[in-house]
């Protein structure tokens, strides 16, 4: 085991995959400048700076992916993906289907998002559900360095376009990463904490929030299970349903806003497939329908906090059982 940050875990995954496969390359604005180790080891052809034009960066990745390369592109901040929507959604996501399966798009799009640095709404916007709604794409949003490394490796090896969203606040967080970390399969959730009374489903930084809430709840005799989705598409429906079948209560927690967010999908899934298990209404704790503010207290107020999760769970425990 080695202790490393999320940022270093991403770099380690890139380096390992570039060593294994000469078609893997990375480009984006500042990539060769910031990832100097990769530039040193793999050279200027495979590690490239680009103009900061996100559309052409993503389009170049899609064109390259369809014709023999495995590009990784760093588009920096998630809201910048607005400039690359056509290339990601209309080209990388659809041209396999449109062409009757003639092409595949083994490419990875990296972007940061989330509260923590006070960068404001045009650098911080949790847009992951837009892409969950777009066919042909896979989306991961891990919470630990080990998962970042393992899922990044899988994303690079996958023959589909994979978007890897990195929560800004987690970039310098540390964790244990196995030396010989293998790829972690896309579409598999992790049970971070087992529990009997309530299921907390989350991803990215709010997994930590749920873990903190679970500790507080445990002190009050409430046993919370925490599920870290890790992949938003494919979604690990089995892990969610299995847990809710046991606990009968569900709170979904994420920083992205509530309307048509991942939480809505998880809630609907449980309503459709595990209704009989439910002993209380499903709750969602999310960011508001507002742009993310820069001011620290406002930014923190945007993100669901552990005490709110605790309150939500307590309200569910007080609910009279539905059945």
């Amino acid at each position: 085991m080695t202790t490393m940050t999320v940022n270093d875990a991403i770099s380690a995954a890139l380096a390992e995959e570039m060593r294994l496969d000469p078609t893997v390359m990375i480009f984006g604005e500042g990539v060769a400048t910031k990832r100097h180790d990769l530039l040193e080891e793999f050279g200027a052809a495979r590690v490239r700076n680009t103009p900061l034009a996100e559309g052409i960066i993503a389009g170049t990745a899609a064109g390259a992916a369809a014709t023999g390369l495995r590009p990784v592109v760093d588009l920096l901040f998630a809201p910048f993906l607005c400039y690359a929507m056509d290339e990601i959604v209309n080209s990388a996501g659809k041209l396999r289907y449109i062409s009757g399966g003639q092409f595949s798009f083994p490419m990875v799009v990296l972007a940061m998002t989330g509260a923590g640095w006070g960068v404001g709404a045009q650098h911080n916007h949790n847009v992951e559900s837009w892409f969950v709604h777009s066919p042909g794409l896979k989306i991961v949003m891990p919470s630990t360095p080990a998962d970042f490394k393992g899922l990044m490796k899988s994303a690079i090896r996958d023959d589909n376009p994979v978007l890897v969203f990195a929560d800004i606040a987690l970039g310098y967080s540390t964790g244990e990463v196995p030396e010989e970390a293998d790829a972690i399969p896309l579409g598999k959730a992790a049970v971070r904490r087992e529990g009997r009374d309530v299921t907390l489903v989350s991803y990215a930084k709010t997994v930590g929030t749920c873990m903190a809430a679970a500790e507080t709840l445990a002190a009050a005799g409430i046993d919370a299970e925490v599920i870290d989705l890790r992949s938003l598409k494919p979604l690990d429906e089995t892990a969610i349903l299995r847990s809710v079948a046991r606990t009968g209560r569900l709170v979904v927690v994420h920083e992205a806003s509530r309307l048509c967010g991942v939480g809505a999908e998880v809630a609907a899934l449980v309503a459709e497939k595990a209704f009989a298990s439910l002993r209380a209404p499903v709750l969602r704790l999310t960011g508001p329908d507002a742009p993310a503010p820069a001011s620290f207290p406002l930014e923190q107020a945007f993100v669901p906090q552990a005490d709110a999760v605790v309150e939500a769970v307590r309200s569910l425990m007080d609910e009279r059982a539905i059945a």
Binding site: T23, M25, A45, R46, G55, I56, A58, G59, T60, A61, A62, G63, A64, A65, A66, T67, G68, L69, P71, D86, E87, N90, S91
Partner: peptide, 17 residues
């Protein structure tokens, strides 16, 4: 314009491969 955004990637793969 979609083809213009993809063409650079196809050109890049010609070069890299």
């Amino acid at each position: 314009g979609g083809e213009l955004a993809l063409a650079t990637g196809v050109g890049l793969s010609r070069r890299m491969l």
